[in-house]
Design a binder for these strands. Structure first.
Length: 284
DNA sequence: CCTGCCGCCTGCGCGC
DNA sequence: TGCGCGCAGGCGGCAG
């Protein structure tokens, strides 16, 4: 489940089942999700045995499970990654990739991933902030997020507005759904040239991105299908809050015009042709 | 430097 | 029914 609200739902869910627990054994059922651990799956497993988790953390779409040793397990869900909590002995899921067993009597923590774009890695000294994600900008919910820095960086870019929103080095956590929703709320077109944006407009789009992600988080995130569920396998309810994403041909909630789907960056963008017209200064 | 495109994977639904 | 195609909440690496 990939954007900030969905990842935060997972982080909160994991907190109850990882913090303070000691790992008895880790099992890697498919090597691909640990490909970022260059020393290999066996080393990944060996390093984790006997270690104790602290409270999970998140920046943007990345989350990590700090260890009391000062290291961490860094995780990214990619397009289809999930963490699930299951009783010991529950049947293996089809896409089960990594299993954590604990020294106590409690349940297992499992990492599932159909497409395996996501994965886990062992971050040396990464408890505070893994160096692997030092290039990822703070997200809008981070108390230290610097709005002025975002505005400056956005306006310095020579690109289109949606590309910039998806650029995790400017602001993290925003993906295809919430970028489209923020653009709709701000009445902006995805190709709006960032260098022509006024500081106030930059601030406004950021505010909308934060607001829509906050609303989604409050109802458990967006779940179109069974790939996007929390650690207990439950869906979120924000799909009904979406104004444009996935709403091709249905009426714009503001003016009733049919929403358009357009190919963009090898995927899709949804917009209202009336309230989000093609801007004078566009970068595709 | 910066920008943007491609490849990485599996599975599902659709049209033929 | 079967098959091929397009499509899916992502990102890193690399070409230009």
């Amino acid at each position: 489940m990939p954007e900030l609200p969905e990842v935060e739902v997972v982080r909160r869910g994991l907190a109850d089942f990882t913090a303070g627990r000691t790992i008895d054994a880790v099992e890697v059922l498919h090597p691909r999700p640990v490909r970022r651990h260059l020393a290999g799956p066996d080393d990944f497993v060996a390093k984790l045995k006997g270690q104790t988790f602290a409270a999970p953390a998140r920046r943007g779409k990345y989350l990590w499970l700090p260890l009391e040793s000062g290291d961490a397990v860094l995780a990214h869900l990619g397009m289809s990654g999930q963490f699930r909590v299951q009783p010991v002995g529950a049947p293996d899921e089809k896409h089960l990739r990594i299993r954590f067993r604990f020294a106590d009597d409690g349940g297992e923590v499992r990492f599932l991933d159909q497409r395996m774009f996501g994965g886990l890695s062992y971050s040396e000294g990464g408890a505070e902030l893994p160096e692997e994600i030092a290039h990822i900008a703070r997200d809008p919910f981070d108390p230290l997020f610097d709005e002025d820095l975002f505005v400056t960086a956005l306006r310095r870019k020579k690109t289109g507005l949606k590309r910039a929103l998806l650029d995790q080095t400017l602001v993290s956590g925003v993906g295809n759904i919430y970028a489209d929703e923020a653009l709709w709320r701000a009445k902006q077109h995805y190709a709006k040239a960032t260098e022509t944006m006024k500081p106030l407009q930059a601030r406004e789009i950021l505010g909308h991105a934060k607001a829509v992600m906050g609303e989604a988080l409050a109802v458990g995130g967006t779940s179109f299908d069974a790939l996007y569920v929390n650690v207990n396998g439950e869906s979120g309810y924000f799909e009904r809050g979406l104004a444009v994403y996935g709403q091709e041909d249905s009426p714009c909630p503001r003016d009733g015009r049919p929403i358009r789907r357009e190919p963009f960056m090898n995927r899709s963008s949804f917009r209202c042709p009336k309230c989000q017209p093609v801007p004078r200064h566009a970068r595709w």
